[in-house]
Design a protein around this nucleic acid. Structure first.
Length: 370
DNA sequence: AAATCGGGGAA
DNA sequence: TTCCCAGATTT
């Protein structure tokens, strides 16, 4: 560690050290060019950069990979995605979460195809006006795909910078200060690599718990490290505790194994996705299991309770199972049990079906390519 | 500024 | 268990 009286590295010194580290620890990812490709004058495909950034919002790299491969195989260009049916896009997104991302993805593809002849805007401002693209994503695409010197700030970068400067302001109030500090670091020659390097540093070295400071290329200028208070940052406001909601789910199985599904409303939680019939999830706080909320009379067999945790509440669904052959009510449908993986079934609904029919197990067809 | 919106991996 | 992840949008 640098002596306390030594001058801290300048922002551009730090950026240089970081890029040196990045070149030695480059991670190969499906949406990333191979090392040295940019030096050869190659540019990433803006469509692939955009798609990966939308998928990666609040989502881990490991969860995204198979979805990215499936999307790019099925829709290789933004024009292909614009030509797709939005319901097919929702089905392909099923399981990845935050489904408004998928709707905005489709809206954005349509807009780029129709208004911009299939070419993404090449500035941060132009990108920022597209659906689903906010402060982070517009900066990231501008830097990575178009070599613009934008300040890219995600959760990783917030952690790195608040530690580097020992910022005492809690998030999210500290965001403007962080943005300004990053802006001062951005190297004009390799802004895209710099952005990805900052995020890689946060993901692999400057981790939330027990960061590997001894391996960090920025440790000699890090105020938190110098005072051994790394894990104190970033400061955050306390979050509210999650309430519990209770309801019941009804898995109806036809003699041939088909499952009765319906579509959720286009607004709100899991908007426009498929579900098995359920009671509503707020009315029952009284401990009743919801059997009287069944969509119709049948020989309902209890199949236990599934628990699913959403962002702001926990859901406990009592699952009931019945074998029945009826004409589906208006706008409901029978889904072939072997093709459930191709329905727009969110994970919580998959859990409910699997509780009633254990042989279904986990969702198939997403992790492996067909 | 606060609430809404999924799901899973890591420790 | 707890944390939080390449956040955006609405209220």
């Amino acid at each position: 560690m640098a002596p306390a009286n030594m001058k801290r590295p300048s922002p551009s010194d730090q950026a240089h050290s970081l890029l040196e580290w990045y070149d030695r620890h480059h991670r190969r990812l499906p949406w990333r060019l191979n090392p040295g490709a940019i030096a050869q004058g190659e540019r990433p495909d803006p469509y692939r950069v955009w798609l990966s950034e939308i998928m990666l919002q609040q989502t881990t790299v490991g969860a995204v990979k198979s979805y990215f491969d499936a999307f790019t195989a099925r829709w290789p260009t933004v024009l292909d995605l614009a030509a797709a049916d939005v319901d097919d896009v929702m089905k392909a997104w099923a399981g990845l979460g935050y489904y408004s991302r998928a709707r905005n993805l489709k809206k954005c593809a349509d807009l780029v195809a129709e208004e911009f002849s299939g070419r993404f805007p090449d500035t941060e401002e132009g990108l920022r006006n597209l659906p689903g693209i906010g402060d982070y994503t517009s900066a990231a695409i501008a830097a990575i795909a178009f070599n613009r010197p934008s300040a890219v700030v995600d959760g990783n970068v917030e952690r790195v910078v608040t530690r580097l400067h020992a910022i005492e302001t809690p998030l999210p109030a500290a965001k403007p200060e962080i943005k300004a500090l990053v802006k001062a670091m951005v190297p004009t020659d390799r802004p895209g690599d710099f952005a990805q390097a900052m995020m890689d540093l946060g993901a692999t070295i400057c981790t939330p718990r027990t960061p590997a400071c001894s391996l960090c290329p920025l440790n000699d200028g890090c105020l938190a490290y110098q005072s051994k208070t790394q894990e104190r940052y970033p400061l955050k406001l306390a979050k509210a505790e999650k309430p519990v909601r209770i309801g019941a789910a009804f898995v109806v199985e036809r003699p041939d194994g088909a499952i009765l599904l319906r579509k959720r409303p286009l607004k709100g939680l899991l908007a426009g996705m498929a579900e098995v019939p359920t009671t509503d999830w707020t009315a029952r706080q009284d401990g009743a299991d919801g059997i009287d909320g069944a969509p119709f009379e049948a020989n309902w067999l209890p199949r236990g309770v599934i628990v699913h945790v959403f962002t702001h509440f926990e859901l406990r669904l009592s699952v009931y199972h019945a074998k029945l052959d009826i004409p589906p009510p208006q706008s409901w449908w029978w889904a072939d049990q072997n093709l459930l993986g191709e329905e727009a079934l969110p994970t919580v609904m998959w859990k409910a079906v699997a509780a009633a029919i254990p042989s279904l197990g986990k969702r198939s067809g997403k992790k492996k390519k067909t």
